[in-house]
Design a binder for these strands. Sequence first.
DNA 1: TTACTGCCGATTTTCGAAATAATCAAAACC
DNA 2: GGTTTTGATTATTTCGAAAATCGGCAGTAA
Lengths: 244, 244
Amino acid sequence: MGNTLKPAGETRAGDVLARMRSDIISCALKPGTKLRFETLRELYEVSFSTLREALSRLVAEGLVVAEGQRGFLVAPVSLFDLNDLTDVRVLVERQCIKLAIERGDDRWEADIMAAFHRMDRLQSRLGASYYLSDEWATLHSAFHLSLVAACGSPNLLEIRQKLFERAHRYRRMSSQFRPQWRAKDVEHKMIMDRVIARDTATAQDLVDRHIRETTENVIAHASHLFAQGGAGDPFKRSDPVAAE
Amino acid sequence: MGNTLKPAGETRAGDVLARMRSDIISCALKPGTKLRFETLRELYEVSFSTLREALSRLVAEGLVVAEGQRGFLVAPVSLFDLNDLTDVRVLVERQCIKLAIERGDDRWEADIMAAFHRMDRLQSRLGASYYLSDEWATLHSAFHLSLVAACGSPNLLEIRQKLFERAHRYRRMSSQFRPQWRAKDVEHKMIMDRVIARDTATAQDLVDRHIRETTENVIAHASHLFAQGGAGDPFKRSDPVAAE
DNA sequence: TTACTGCCGATTTTCGAAATAATCAAAACC
DNA sequence: GGTTTTGATTATTTCGAAAATCGGCAGTAA
């Protein structure tokens, strides 16, 4: 049919959703902040209903929490949540890796190498501080997804993706302090090698460590930003992202 | 403070959400059905915005799917989805059981026994077809939750609960055909015993089998109702629920 | 002083109309 | 005859005002 392209076919709510998600992950909207409709309406230039739509979806993603009839809140960060999130991610990611290695075909292997190559090339182009770039964050996310894309479980992949994005916010919080993630490059290559070699146990262990080390890094360098009880601390506006 | 009770403190959106969820699970709204706003507005007696709010949340729960700017759809059922859902549930539930047994205290054990007792008493009161009751479904859900409540992972519990509700719809589809779930009663007791005895491996295996057998039952008796490609088949309106 | 009750301003939630986008069918074109 | 274009119809998305709700404060009583 005539339906050739529709890249611009985006609803306003979808646009606001994306922008808010980005602002929350980058901590431009600080954890624990109360989200007042009037303020947001001016900031994003949309109406109440459209905001509500976006807020509802962000609640589903765990980036915003709803407080009964008392409005919305940027989801607080905490040491407890980070650790819990990490444990769940490890569980899910290990299973994804296992299934993908069982079920993946040649096409899957090729896609992994392509995703790695794209990420690797962009790193070279951007130089030392590649991890500060939003574009790199996208390719990094795509690389990790490609590793498990063949797992054959839409439900597991959906859960994995939501957890990945929640974790992204924590990574971003630490990357602005200690930009020394060089070891991660090597890890990505090792993981890819072991996955394509269908070495399930080693691949799982590598991914496990990859995730947990990042968490330890965040705790070491950014945990002073976490709320102890619940309310958020003041954050500097920034948009760097940590590697994983 | 004076805040003694607020059981009636429910927003209209929350009310509509609950009613729609119930209607979807009971297949009063058939899988694959297109959800037209005008129709729903009359059915639930609310406005567009309120509907949109509820729909958004149901999308998050996986009971409704959004089709870009072409509206909403009751999430279709399929053999593939049921099997996938079952596998993910087993993964999550096994981990929940393991953690709960590691971390649970006396209070946790007591809560399990209390939940079982309440479910058991209601079964006696309702007689042979207890599983047709919504009230029993609630207690059944609470019992399974109590088993893993002490796992200490809010993220895992949240995922578990969403998967449980999605599976609920499938259970309901089969229970209207073959009301012979008597073996499940015994299973519940066995699971409780092994969990409280802190016998992790056996408890995990029992829960695993508990879930998978229910799925097999659904496939055996209700898979003819599943859409092959995606669109839903006609369903009879009903509100029975299968045991698990 | 302490606890309860009733009001007021601020904020959220709901509403239905208006704008925008998709669908379908008939007409025009190749 | 088959394909594309056009236009009317239907459905969804967005808007801002109106209604409902919350939290605090003043006033009263114990």
